[in-house]
Amino acid sequence: MSRALLLPQVFKIKTIKRLTPDTLLYEVTDQDGNFDLSYRPGQFMEVSIFGSGECPISITSTPSRPQHIEFAVREVGLVSGAMHNLEPSEHIGLRGPFGNGFPIDALKGKDIFFIAGGIGLAPLRSLINYMLDHREDFGAIDIVYGARSPELLCFAEEFAAWQEAPDTRLHLTIDKETPGWQGKVGFVPAIVKELGLPPRDRAAIACGPPVMIKFTLLDLAALGYPDEDVITTLELKMKCGVGKCGRCNIGPIYVCREGPVFRLSELNRLPAEY
């Protein structure tokens, strides 16, 4: 009998690390201690906490490091809250991977401009680490990452590795001046503008809170980025993840199926209902 559509598989939590006061990083394995699952950066899974429910979470690990799979989860409600109460060696359910993922082949050979705010770094981290593991396939990499304050920056442990990677620059920013802070100060869109990286042969990939995205897109347009070269991921309420429950549509498309990664040129063809 084929597997029921909405039936998750049980996996074990191997480690839990605190990324920020409200965000934890979960490393998940199957019973044999590894994780046999193929996925693409930018895809997501439906994560189950039995007794509370299910919610869509981006895969933040990269398939180029196949020994584990990781999720960064911010506590915001019922399921994410229940997940924060779990301990290592407890279990979660997973369905997926779902969604289209980033257009990796189309990005090959290009310079890449990552722009992230807060938990929005989670899906981008998958692609960043993938690109660093296939460094020769991609051009220069610039990463602008911002949060309100230094302790709200996720994945701080990895910043050094990103900065040291060849032809890769990390531009960290926080909203307000804080004692001891070495990076930039200001909102993410302002830093994008300040850097002024020219669009020639460069794709911009942005993920973060709606206001950040809104202003970043305006600044990228002002810098002359064509809409085909601006990529973002969308977050809409989801239930099934497979285009059946009718929850996540924007006009004729379902974000869980055709998304969550879109080029701005594709979004422009959709009604502005997201």
Binding site: S52, G53, C240
Partner: peptide, 9 residues
């Protein structure tokens, strides 16, 4: 055909 998915414990 829209549906919701919920848990009951």
């Amino acid at each position: 055909y829209c549906f919701d998915v919920e848990d009951e414990r």
